[in-house]
Design a protein around this nucleic acid. Structure first.
Length: 596
RNA sequence: GGCCCGGUAGUUCAGUUGGUUAGAACGCUAGCCUGUCACGCUAGAGGUCAGGGGUUCGAGCCCCCUUCGGGUCGCCA
């Protein structure tokens, strides 16, 4: 069922008519959001992406129009020609943008009927996400979802304008690229023309944007789709979007300051929020020491406290051994958490165990006594020192983890966040930005028994640390930086290596032979022979940025058609099996078949 | 790959130690209703309790397997 639109032209979106239009005849089109049939008076709330408009059908005005209106059901698509009328004062709806007026219908066309939708179209619905995703086109009709995508559009527009104003050119880079040996798993695309060969989808435009710098474009940006075949999370999808940029003739400060300008502008213009610049900066080491995380949430305190020196020679073997074995003992003071039940504390212990900690020691400081399982291992002076160092007051719960530094950081970092969550310290309307700088250039992979790049192999070491590159690689810091918002890594980047000899040293350090390096990145090394400007840049996770701006907990709410945890799409059922004929054309044989 | 949590009308949920015919709200259908905007009133339809197996006289509830989701660790340069 559906009538033609022939002869009608929409004159207004639903929330556009106002008190100034009273008496005018308008043509509005949209979805029947709700109908209220009072017998011989029918109200229909007409909805489009701008909002709601009340249409009135009066039974005394004649039979045909009214009986047609009686057939309207939710989500029918309607065209209404009618007169804008002022509502009487007692009938004004202050909750509606158009609450002072209504449309007295003169003509109705039912452009499209609708079955009863499986989910109701309403704000803040808490419908199961699979059902939402199966009928995503209905889910996306919900006003809060529409708002998310209008925000997303705004942010992208502001980004393009901002970088344009600052001399950046948007240039597209290929989607069909070569598989890259380091980093995330690639999505592969078989080549029909080259039997047995594969393209990969880009994890990022990294090397292409560097080549654009070699090409002399000076400043580049792109709203870039990226692909990574890794497991999903609330803030990780297999395909996602970056605001990607690169600049020539810059140092770290140049990149940071131009991006502080972007953040300031986008939060002001898209959200009306003032962000203070320059942002706080922490070196990676300081972030780890103070917050146990390279992406600390600065909306609350509860910083880590190192107590290793106090317990190095104590009688509690767990603590003293951790320090003697090169690790540390650190604590956080959970203010006001002494009242946590044993069960609540046990769940904190379980939490730190997921980060490889063997346990969590704790002291609950009460008015006149200490409750703890470990105080018996310490003498009074030691306890006093621990309480002083952690600034413990009555009502506080002091949590300790003793282990290798990585385990201590990871577990206390996570514990700090969990306690903040439980105490309700995380305010989504507060936006705390910071830069984390001076990341380690390399980390040692036990699995591969070699040094691997923490960022990527093209990241420049800090000039001060070049001397240690071969002698003490773990000590070398990188000209790398992350932008962090409320505990989420919003983006990151680095100054790149632009000197071929240094790049060769890096590859050697990473265990690539000259031949392997040339086989994988020959085009970059070749390009580096012909005049390379010093350059650097960064990329933002656009989806994460929108998620945080919209106050959502998952990037699925700001991606129109996202995948679920197993990387499939419940609506289109992708990925799917393909015809044998297609496989033959691609010279591919698969060993798994569709189960019958 | 590991761990944790979950799946009951279209939707969101309740469902007692395992015990008669599995309930509520919203939505839906029909009737009545001229100022509703969470319209109201009356009546009604709607269930493979995710699927399979087991224990039991008896299973939505207990056990096992499978499946589908969510969170997370690993992974994500």
């Amino acid at each position: 069922m559906g009538e033609t639109i022939y002869g009608l032209k929409r004159t207004h979106r639903c929330t556009e008519p106002g008190i100034a239009d009273v008496g005018k005849t308008v043509t509005v089109m949209g979805w029947a959001h709700k109908r209220r049939n009072l017998g011989s008076l029918i109200f229909v709330a007409l909805r489009d992406r701008t909002g709601l408009l009340q249409v009135v059908f009066n039974g005394t005005d004649g039979g045909e129009l009214f009986s047609k209106a009686e057939t309207i059901r939710n989500e029918y698509v309607l065209a209404v020609v009618g007169e804008v009328a002022k509502r009487t004062p007692e009938n004004i709806n202050p909750n509606m943008k158009t609450g002072e007026i209504e449309i007295i219908a003169k003509e109705l066309r039912i452009l499209s009927a609708s079955e009863t939708p499986p989910i109701q179209i309403e704000e803040d619905s808490d419908v199961n996400e699979v059902i939402r995703l199966k009928h995503r086109y209905l889910d996306l009709r919900r006003p809060d979802m529409q708002a998310n995508f209008m925000l997303r559009h705004r942010v992208v527009k502001i980004a393009r304008d901002y970088y344009d104003t600052n001399g950046f050119l948007e240039i597209e880079t290929p989607i069909l690229v070569n598989s890259s040996p380091e980093g995330a798993r690639d999505y592969l695309v078989p080549s029909r023309v080259h039997p047995g060969k594969f393209y990969a989808l880009p994890q990022s435009p990294q090397l292409f944007k560097q080549l654009l710098m070699v090409a002399g474009f000076d400043r580049y940006m792109q709203i870039a789709k990226c692909f990574r075949d890794e497991d999903l999370r609330a803030d990780r999808q297999p395909e996602f979007t970056q605001i990607d940029l690169e600049m020539s003739f810059v140092n770290v400060d140049d990149v940071l300051s131009i991006n502080e300008g972007f953040i300031k502008k986008v939060f002001k213009e898209a959200l009306g929020v003032d962000i203070e610049t320059p942002f706080q900066r922490l070196t990676w080491q300081e972030a780890m020491d103070r917050f146990g995380s390279d992406k600390p949430d600065l909306r609350f305190g509860m910083e880590l406290v190192n107590v290793s020196d106090l317990v190095e020679d104590c009688g509690f073997k767990v603590f003293s051994d951790a320090v003697k074995n090169g690790g540390s003992v650190r604590a956080i003071n959970a203010k006001g958490c002494a009242k946590f039940s044993r069960k609540e504390i046990d769940s904190l212990v379980d939490l730190v165990k997921t980060y490889k900690a063997k346990g969590m020691a704790w002291i609950a400081v009460e008015e006149n006594e200490l409750k703890s399982s470990i105080t018996k291992f310490f003498n009074d002076a030691e306890i006093k020192a621990l309480l002083e160092r952690t600034k413990a007051e009555p009502g506080d719960l002091i949590c300790f983890v003793a282990d290798k530094n990585k385990v201590v950081y990871d577990s206390l970092g996570a514990l700090r966040l969990e306690i903040a969550r439980r105490l309700g310290l995380l305010d989504k309307s507060e936006f705390r930005f910071l830069w984390v700088t001076e990341f380690p250039l390399l980390e040692y992979s036990e699995e591969e028994q070699r040094w691997v790049a923490m960022h990527h192999p093209f990241t420049s070491p800090m000039d001060e640390d070049l001397q240690y590159l071969e002698s003490d690689p773990g000590r070398v810091r990188a000209k790398a930086y992350d932008i962090v918002l409320n505990g989420t890594e919003l983006g990151g980047g680095s100054i790149r290596i632009h000197i071929q000899e240094l790049q060769s040293r890096m590859f050697k350090l990473l265990g690539f032979t000259e031949e392997e390096a040339w086989a994988k990145f020959g085009y970059l090394l070749e390009a580096f022979k012909y005049g390379v400007p010093p350059h650097g840049g960064m990329a933002y996770g656009l989806d994460r940025m929108i998620m945080l701006m919209a106050g959502k907990d998952s990037i699925r709410d700001v991606i129109a058609f996202p995948k679920v945890q197993n990387a499939s799409d419940p609506m289109t059922n992708s990925p799917g099996f393909v015809d044998q004929k297609q496989l033959q054309e691609l010279n591919i044989s698969v060993t798994v078949q569709e189960s019958k």
